[in-house]
Design a protein around this nucleic acid. Structure first.
Length: 508
RNA sequence: GGCCCGUUCGUCUAGGGGUUAGGACGCAUCCCUUUCACGGAUGAAACACGGGUUCGAUUCCCGUACGGGCUACCA
């Protein structure tokens, strides 16, 4: 029988979870749901020096906002494998137990080298122009560890509480072969891998030990993680092998990285060309810098994850707008790209626009409400909904309905100067004054009637300067259909606005 | 430097031994709209290079170049 699909997202709480992390979580989520499996959140806080308290809360809130919630794990109702935070798991002695197993199997050893001794070694290797200077099958023989020391010496050091680490004993010149779902078979010679520290001198495991122990204990079936882990994967395979579990180890899938939009390299906090890096607002206590989030920038979570999903994956057809359910249906790791994907801010905005357009005017009115409140504007739900319908096609974001259509809520306080200067003169003034009378007579005051009135007026009295009229009513030179704007505004307001404009704007 | 991974329009990508190399974003032009946007139409725009294998390679193999990742008692 096939193993139940159980995947995990395992971030380190060392700062705000950025969009790359969210995408990793998303792919894990989609894969889990696709296979009716479990999606687990585990906190990898083994580096106590980099721990950021607020980061855990931020991770949870971000996943919730994105709608990619784990069904088990930290902050999402502990499941049968609690605790889900590695610092707490450490207290159960589980990592120590596995480290001992590895030592017994001859796959790991104690190392007592001090920081100075390691530094010295590095210098020595550098001076000797060694091709890959590292703690490995050659250099370990000239260091202080349980491979070079006698059993008695080791026991004595241990008894005296000498600080030590436990290292992986990587063999010389062995082919390590493993399969990656996205990349296929990968073969690496063990001589190029260093003897990684598995257990640190503070008693905490490193990532290399901790994730393996937890993945085993939590019965993880697939490890879906960023490409940055590919180089250490052979060491992980070796660890499973020493544990006698190589055949049962989770399947691996290394996701391509998200790259900067311009320039090169991994996406960084700075270089996202104006768009956020983080799902939610993030304040970095250490640097005092704050970063704006996608949520606070007015992105819909559906648009955000849709955009993220298509960075490195595609559904195999030309469909680009996909609901979460459609993504789940169509998701497969085999369709994930191998190459890194440059993040495109323009397309990201386009995604949001697509989702905005799909919302009903009532939904949009609801979303606009807080912004209107902020600006002390109140009106009927119906009026707001009508304005949303009117402005919808122009906006990428809900807030743009306000920004672009402010004149639908408040009277203009200024008028497009260029247009006024160019077009406002004695003749056009007379034209507008006469038009005022025509407008007064329009009944009912709707788009079609207004349109007809314009046409009749033009026939009898000559050309109407619509742009000038628009500026008189809205203050700006472009926007949706003028007749429609007038209908929504209502006759009274329209007349009043024109009169105000006529008396405010001076003939030059 | 070493190791690993990668390379189709500017960007995200489809495809895959024989295709007019498809779509999307962006860009340009036109239509629609008495404006802008939306929508529609059209256009410019890509298989990194060199060798093989083959009747035929963008597709398979090998090199080279370029890009990226890793190279910590960080994850």
């Amino acid at each position: 029988m096939e193993k139940r699909v159980r995947v995990r997202f395992a971030p380190s709480p060392t700062g705000g979870l950025h969009m790359g992390g969210v995408r990793t979580a998303l792919f894990n989520y989609l894969f889990a749901k696709k296979h009716n499996g479990d999606f687990i959140l585990r906190i990898e806080d083994t580096d106590q020096t980099r721990y950021v308290k607020d980061a855990e809360r931020y991770i949870i809130e971000s996943l919730k906002w994105c709608g990619i919630e784990p069904n088990e794990g930290f902050g999402f109702g502990d499941g049968p494998y609690a605790p889900y935070r590695q610092s707490e798991r450490k207290n159960t002695g589980i990592y120590w137990k596995y480290a001992q197993k590895l030592i017994e199997a001859g796959g790991a050893y104690y190392a007592f080298d001090t920081e100075e001794e390691l530094e010295e070694m590095r210098k020595r290797l550098e001076a000797a122009k060694v091709v890959s200077p590292q703690y490995n099958h050659i250099t370990r023989m000239s260091m202080r560890n349980s491979l070079t020391l006698s059993a008695d010496q080791v026991k004595e050091l241990l008894d005296k509480n000498t600080p030590f680490v436990i290292r992986l004993k990587v063999p010389r010149n062995e082919e390590i072969r493993f399969h990656d779902i996205i990349r296929g078979w990968i073969v690496v010679n063990s001589s190029t891998i260093d003897d990684k520290v598995l257990l640190k001198s503070d008693g905490m495991p490193t990532y290399h030990l901790a994730h393996i122990v937890d993945d085993i204990e939590m019965k993880i079936s697939h490890v879906i993680r960023g490409e940055e882990w590919l180089p250490s994967a052979p060491a992980h395979v070796l660890t499973y092998r020493y544990l006698g579990l190589e055949n049962e180890m989770p399947q691996l899938a290394h996701l391509p990285l998200i790259l900067k939009p311009d320039g090169k390299g991994k996406l960084s906090k700075r270089d996202t060309s104006g768009l956020p890096m983080f799902p939610l607002n993030w304040y970095d206590e250490r640097t005092g810098e704050s970063y704006i989030g996608y949520r606070e920038s007015g992105f819909f979570p559906e648009a955000f994850i849709n955009m993220l999903a298509l960075l490195g994956w595609n559904p195999g057809n030309n469909q680009e707008i996909l609901s979460k359910e459609e993504m789940i249906q169509l998701f497969s790791l085999e369709k994930v790209h191998k190459a890194g994907a440059k993040f495109d801010p323009e397309k990201t905005k386009w995604f949001n626009q697509q989702y905005l357009r799909k919302k009903s005017k009532e939904e949009l009115a609801e979303l606009l409400e807080p912004i209107l409140k902020e600006n002390n504007f109140t009106s009927t739900k119906e009026y707001v909904a009508n304005v949303c319908e009117l402005m919808k096609e122009k906006a990428h974001f809900v807030k743009e309905i306000w920004e672009l259509g402010k004149y639908m809520f408040v009277e203009p306080t200024s008028y497009d100067e260029k247009i006024i200067q160019k077009k406002f003169n004695a003749d056009s003034k007379k034209m507008i004054e006469e038009l005022l009378n025509t407008l007064q007579a329009v009944q009912p005051f709707d788009e079609q009637n207004i349109h007809n009135a314009f046409e009749n007026f033009a026939k009898e009295k000559g050309k109407i300067d619509y742009q000038l009229l628009r500026v008189f009513i809205t203050g700006v030179s472009s926007g949706p259909s003028l007749a429609k704007i007038m209908e929504i505004l209502g006759k009274e307001k329209v007349i009043k606005r024109i009169e105000t404009a006529l008396s405010t704007i001076l003939l030059s």
